[in-house]
Deep mutational scan, measured.
Amino acid sequence: EPIEAIAKFDYVGRSARELSFKKGASLLLYHRASEDWWEGRHNGIDGLVPHQYIVVQD
């Protein structure tokens, strides 16, 4: 079951695997890939989301 998150800041992906998004964007998170990253989805694209840039919705 994906988790919803909201972007705290704009983020520009630094590689093809990283998602880019704007502050306030809604993201879906699948699972924690590491301490710093989530596997997630934004605008229909799957990729990595940096933990420091999002607020996970409970």
Score class of each variant (00 low, 15 high):
residue 18 E to P: 03
residue 47 G to H: 00
residue 46 D to C: 05
residue 48 L to F: 13
residue 30 Y to D: 05
residue 29 L to C: 05
residue 7 A to D: 01
residue 26 S to K: 05
residue 28 L to C: 13
residue 47 G to W: 00
residue 45 I to A: 10
residue 48 L to I: 04
residue 45 I to Q: 15
residue 35 E to P: 09
residue 35 E to S: 12
residue 43 N to F: 11
residue 14 R to D: 09
residue 51 H to A: 15
residue 16 A to R: 11
residue 54 I to Y: 03
residue 15 S to N: 14
residue 45 I to V: 13
residue 48 L to T: 06
residue 36 D to W: 08
residue 41 R to Q: 03
residue 4 E to S: 10
residue 14 R to I: 11
residue 43 N to H: 04
residue 19 L to F: 03
residue 4 E to V: 09
residue 52 Q to P: 10
residue 21 F to P: 01
residue 54 I to N: 01
residue 25 A to Y: 11
residue 29 L to Y: 02
residue 19 L to V: 11
residue 45 I to R: 06
residue 2 P to S: 15
residue 20 S to C: 06
residue 2 P to H: 15
residue 11 Y to V: 10
residue 34 S to L: 05
residue 14 R to P: 03
residue 2 P to K: 15
residue 39 E to D: 13
residue 45 I to G: 12
residue 53 Y to H: 06
residue 11 Y to R: 06
residue 31 H to E: 14
residue 28 L to H: 12
residue 32 R to V: 04
residue 28 L to P: 03
residue 27 L to R: 01
residue 5 A to D: 00
residue 32 R to W: 04
residue 48 L to N: 06
residue 32 R to A: 06
residue 47 G to T: 01
residue 56 V to I: 10
residue 4 E to C: 05
residue 17 R to V: 06
residue 50 P to D: 04
residue 12 V to Y: 08
residue 22 K to V: 11
residue 14 R to L: 08
residue 16 A to T: 09
residue 21 F to R: 00
residue 13 G to E: 08
residue 46 D to W: 07
residue 20 S to N: 04
residue 23 K to H: 05
residue 12 V to R: 12
residue 45 I to C: 04
residue 49 V to C: 05
residue 9 F to S: 15
residue 16 A to Q: 12
residue 16 A to F: 05
residue 35 E to Q: 08
residue 34 S to V: 04
residue 6 I to F: 13
residue 14 R to F: 05
residue 37 W to H: 12
residue 47 G to S: 00
residue 47 G to A: 03
residue 8 K to H: 13
residue 12 V to F: 14
residue 6 I to S: 11
residue 25 A to E: 15
residue 44 G to Y: 12
residue 26 S to E: 12
residue 4 E to N: 04
residue 41 R to T: 09
residue 48 L to M: 14
residue 6 I to K: 10
residue 43 N to E: 15
residue 56 V to A: 15
residue 35 E to F: 13
residue 35 E to A: 11
residue 23 K to P: 03
residue 9 F to I: 08
residue 25 A to F: 13
residue 5 A to I: 04
residue 43 N to I: 03
residue 23 K to I: 04
residue 44 G to I: 03
residue 35 E to R: 10
residue 52 Q to I: 11
residue 26 S to H: 13
residue 48 L to Q: 07
residue 58 D to I: 03
residue 16 A to K: 13
residue 42 H to D: 04
residue 18 E to Q: 12
residue 48 L to P: 02
residue 56 V to L: 07
residue 40 G to C: 07
residue 58 D to W: 09
residue 56 V to F: 15
residue 2 P to W: 15
residue 42 H to M: 06
residue 50 P to I: 04
residue 50 P to F: 06
residue 9 F to G: 14
residue 43 N to Q: 15
residue 3 I to D: 04
residue 42 H to W: 09
residue 43 N to K: 09
residue 27 L to H: 01
residue 39 E to V: 08
residue 55 V to I: 04
residue 31 H to K: 14
residue 19 L to T: 03
residue 25 A to G: 11
residue 10 D to S: 12
residue 36 D to K: 11
residue 53 Y to P: 04
residue 37 W to M: 13
residue 11 Y to D: 00
residue 42 H to C: 12
residue 53 Y to I: 05
residue 17 R to W: 05
residue 51 H to P: 03
residue 53 Y to E: 07
residue 51 H to G: 11
residue 22 K to G: 09
